[in-house]
C-alpha cells in the first residue's frame, strides 16, 4: 500500500489489517476503564488471575468466597482477582480544510493512519473513540469496540470531508471535557492554527494518560517546490500572500518551518505529549509499521 493509490481505494486493505491484528498500542500507564477488558487495571475485578483478599461485605458474590481460609480460620474472605479492563483510545483527527491540501494527499494519509491506529486498538480489545474536529468538535461517533467495528471505523473515516477553519484550542477543550483520565489520546493534525497550539496542548496533558501527537505535513509543505510570482491562498481563511519565489524566500520558509516544529516539540515536552513528525512522502503503512514501532507506540 502506497501513497500513489487512488483516493477511491479503501483506506486499509486486508493484508494490512492482518498485520495490524498482531500489534497492540503500548501505554506506559495502567489504564482504568468502566468495562472489563483485556488490559490489566489497578482495580481488582473479575478475572482468572488472583490478586488479593478482602473482608467479606454482605452483598458480595459468594462465588468468590475463599473457602479454604474459612475452613482454617473461620473468617470470611473474598478472593480478589486482577480485573482486565478495556482501554479507551481517543483518535482525535483534524478535519479542517488545511488537511485537504498538499501533495501527496494529506487528508487521505491522515485518515489511513487514523484507521490503522483504530484498527490496531480495536483488534487488541480497546474501545476506540473517534473525535473529529475542525473549528469545533464535530458530532461524536459512538465508541467502537471489537474487531468487527474496524470496518465501521473505516467507513466513518471514508465519509469524512475536510472543511472549515482549524480551532485546536476550542476543539480539544470540548474533547477533554469528556475524556476520562488514563485514556490514550492520539491527535492527528497539521497543527496549522493561527492561534497557536499551546493552549490546545494544555487540554490533553500526558499526565492524565497517554497523549500522542502525529504532526502530519505534506511533502509540499515540508519541501515546497514553488517558482515565479505567486499569490498563495490560504485553504481555510481565504487570506493570501503575494510572494516572488526566490532562494532566499524558500530558505526563510524552511527557517520558519523549523522554528514552528521546534515550538511544537517544546510544547509537547512541557505537556508530556509524545510527538511524531510525519510527512506524506512516507507511506502510511511505513509510518505505522516502522515509525510508530520505533517510537514504541506499538508492539
Amino acid at each position: 500500500m502506497s501513497n500513489s493509490e487512488p483516493s477511491a481505494a479503501p483506506l486499509l486493505d486486508e493484508d494490512f489489517l492482518a498485520r495490524c491484528a498482531k500489534l497492540v498500542l503500548v501505554s506506559r500507564n495502567v489504564l482504568q476503564g468502566k468495562v472489563r477488558g483485556e488490559k490489566r487495571s489497578k482495580r481488582r475485578g473479575m478475572s482468572t488471575e488472583f490478586a488479593d483478599h478482602r473482608d467479606y461485605i454482605p452483598g458480595d458474590d459468594l462465588r468468590h468466597l475463599d473457602w479454604n481460609i474459612f475452613g482454617r480460620l473461620e473468617k470470611l474472605f473474598i478472593k480478589l482477582f486482577e480485573e482486565e479492563e478495556e482501554r479507551s483510545v481517543f483518535l482525535i483527527l483534524d478535519a479542517s480544510a488545511s488537511m485537504s491540501s498538499g501533495e501527496p494527499d494529506k487528508w487521505r494519509h491522515a485518515r489511513q493512519v487514523t484507521a490503522a491506529l483504530g484498527a490496531i486498538a480495536l483488534s487488541s480489545g480497546d474501545r476506540v473513540h473517534l473525535r473529529v474536529f475542525d473549528e469545533q468538535l464535530r458530532t461524536p461517533v459512538p465508541p467502537l469496540r471489537g474487531s468487527r467495528s474496524i470496518l465501521k471505523l473505516v467507513d466513518v473515516l471514508e465519509k469524512l470531508k475536510p472543511e472549515s477553519e482549524t480551532s485546536l484550542d476550542k476543539s480539544l477543550r470540548a474533547h477533554s471535557a469528556t475524556c476520562p483520565s488514563g485514556a490514550i489520546q492520539i491527535l492527528i493534525s497539521d497543527l496549522m492554527d493561527p492561534e497557536g497550539v499551546e493552549s490546545a496542548f494544555r487540554q490533553i496533558p500526558g499526565v492524565r494518560g497517554e497523549s500522542w501527537l502525529i504532526h502530519l505535513l505534506s511533502q509540499s509543505e515540508a519541501q515546497p517546490d514553488l517558482q515565479g510570482d505567486l499569490r498563495l491562498v490560504d485553504s481555510e481563511r481565504q487570506e493570501h500572500v503575494d510572494v516572488t519565489m526566490t532562494n532566499s524566500v524558500l530558505k526563510a520558509y524552511q527557517s520558519a518551518l523549523s522554528q514552528f516544529r521546534e515550538e511544537i516539540r517544546s510544547h509537547c515536552r512541557r505537556y508530556k505529549i509524545q510527538p511524531v513528525e510525519v510527512s506524506t512522502a512516507v507511506p502510511f503503512d511505513q509510518v505505522v509499521l516502522d515509525v510508530l514501532r520505533q517510537k514504541r507506540w506499538l508492539s
Binding site: S101, G102, L232, V233, S235, H240
Partner: peptide, 10 residues
C-alpha cells in the same frame, strides 16, 4: 494563484 494549506508559515 496557488493554494496552500495555510499561509501561516509563509
Amino acid at each position: 494563484k496557488s493554494e496552500v494549506s495555510s499561509v501561516l508559515l509563509w
